[in-house]
């Protein structure tokens, strides 16, 4: 599947992280290569991208950081936490 930055992923699509930008806080917040999340919201004027992660947590990621990610869109079915 094709690889892009998060900003290119459309809303409500699930993606898997391939490469994480150099930012220490990201790791502390639980984002590392291999994590999956769903892109929920892209704010106007290059505002932050909101993603939903495992455990129904939402994270706002700055546009500049979000565009440095390399992610891969995956099937919705990977989102195990949204199923019973």
């Amino acid at each position: 599947m094709k690889q892009t930055g998060i900003c290119a992923v459309s809303c409500n699509k699930v993606c898997k992280v391939k490469e994480v930008p150099a930012c220490e806080l990201l790791e502390s917040l639980g984002i590392e290569a291999g994590s999956t999340f769903c892109v929920k919201q892209k704010s106007p004027w290059k505002g932050p991208v909101v993603v939903e992660m495992k455990g129904r947590r939402e994270l706002a990621i700055d546009y500049s950081i979000a565009s440095q990610f390399v992610v891969e869109e995956v099937d919705d079915s990977v989102l195990s936490w949204q199923q019973s």
Partner: peptide, 15 residues
């Protein structure tokens, strides 16, 4: 803050 972050950045602020 998230909604208006992009706008505030133009004025040296942050969401």
């Amino acid at each position: 803050g998230i909604v208006i972050d992009g706008l505030l950045r133009k004025f040296g602020l942050h969401g």
